[in-house]
Design a protein around this nucleic acid. Structure first.
Lengths: 140, 140
DNA sequence: ATAAATTGTTACAGTAAGTGTAACCAATTG
DNA sequence: CAATTGGTTACACTTACTGTAACAATTTAT
């Protein structure tokens, strides 16, 4: 599952949870709404739980409840919660031969460039709150 | 091969060709410098040929020569030449059920967002010329 | 207590995608 | 015609992804 797919899935789940707040929803309910396997969704939700964005309760009448205020919750926080690897995985070719110093310099150049791009992407995501997404959904 | 790996490989090849201009270099020479398979490199170079960034000549004493002035050649142009798919492949989950209108709206939302991000990345790449990269390599 | 419901995690078979290499075709030159 | 080189295709190998199920952990209802 790509980083962007995971992010959109997480946001869909959070929107669903925000609209049904404070009633807990099970992974089955959320997954059938989104159209994704319940087990897979639980993996994503468990990471949101670890980062205290949602809360989970076991047993009957259990499920997931959104914990963080949608106005204070931003895309970048959601993204970081579900993704260990950095941003959108920009890779450069690994070197076969260390002696190729010019190639090494170019590798470093691209590492810096892609790092800059990742920072810009994250900055963009920091400016988008879950609440603003909810508003757009309801307005249209 | 990821988009970013392809881009860095193409730039490495172009730097090599720029430094040896106007002497043609074979795919073997370039690939051994970069540390990549010659056949794979030819695939990338052939796309640069189609986009008239480099020129190729067959037969003995043939090879590749950079055609476009490094000062007028930008990363975005190189990127578009070697990649059909748009930018850095930001995907969102496909929907299983068309009835889920809220999910549809969210999908559209992310399509727009990722499209914005892609445009920003391309704008950033437009500002970087091959010549500026060559200068950085020689200065350090 | 026992059973049922639910989250959290692991396992696994099946599939898809990526990799590296070789082989072949096309074009040019001597 | 033979040698060289770019351009393309094919293929086996590996790796990664996918979807599903299964199981353990935890809570609640009866």
């Amino acid at each position: 599952m790509s980083a962007s797919t995971k992010l959109s899935t997480a946001v869909k789940a959070l929107c669903y949870l925000a609209n049904s707040y404070p009633v807990p929803k099970t992974s089955s309910q959320i997954s059938s709404f989104i159209g994704i396997n319940a087990s897979k969704l639980r993996k994503i939700l468990s990471m949101l739980v670890k980062n205290k964005i949602v809360e989970s309760t076991y047993g009957m009448a259990g499920g997931f409840v959104i914990k963080k205020n949608p106005q204070k919750l931003h895309l970048q926080e959601i993204y970081c919660a579900i993704e260990d690897r950095k941003a959108f995985h920009l890779h450069i070719a690994k070197l076969n031969d260390i002696k190729l110093t010019e190639s090494v310099k170019l590798n470093n150049y691209f590492l810096e460039l892609f790092s800059d791009i990742q920072i810009e992407i994250e900055n963009k995501m920091k400016k988008i709150s879950l609440q603003s997404i909810l508003n757009k959904l309801n307005s249209k």
